[in-house]
């Protein structure tokens, strides 16, 4: 799997709406209420709260993830980003690659993109 696919995958599997099991149209109060409930259930080790579903499969749910997701959805800008991903599950990246017309090779691309080495 390429780096980029990992990225897309991460965006979907850690999407705050998926983690909290809420729809992108939910209210702020619902975020708090649902988050508080999930944290309580996780604290008591209830199996019902132990996983959540995403378009790329079932993921383990942790208290940290729930808290981070609540924070994400409280902030209007980060909420917007997550709403985009929750609404637009992208097709697999491979399917998007144009099959024939490959762009011309561009050796300085990495430098232009600010790529030196992963830091």
């Amino acid at each position: 799997m390429s780096l980029s696919e990992k990225d897309v995958f991460a965006r979907l599997k850690e999407n705050a709406f998926h983690v909290l099991g809420l729809r992108p149209s939910c209210t702020r109060m619902e975020v708090e209420r649902e988050g508080q409930k999930l944290l309580a259930m996780l604290e008591l080790g209830l199996s019902e709260a132990a996983h959540y579903d995403t378009p790329v499969g079932r993921m383990p749910r942790t208290a940290e993830l729930v808290r981070a997701s609540m924070a994400t959805l409280r902030d209007p800008t980060t909420r917007l980003q997550h709403a985009l991903w929750a609404q637009l599950p992208p097709g697999t990246p491979a399917a998007q690659v144009p099959a024939k017309e490959e762009p011309a090779s561009w050796p300085e691309a990495p430098v232009r993109l600010g790529w030196r080495r992963p830091g």
Binding site: L3, D7, Q96, P107, A109, W115
Partner: peptide, 26 residues
């Protein structure tokens, strides 16, 4: 913000079939 632009660009860049070849050269 430039960092997030770069990230998105990078993600797409590495889908290019020759991306790792260029990295290998450098």
């Amino acid at each position: 913000h430039l960092r997030s632009v770069r990230k998105l660009g990078n993600a797409a860049f590495y889908r290019h079939p020759s991306a790792w070849e260029w990295q290998f050269d450098s």
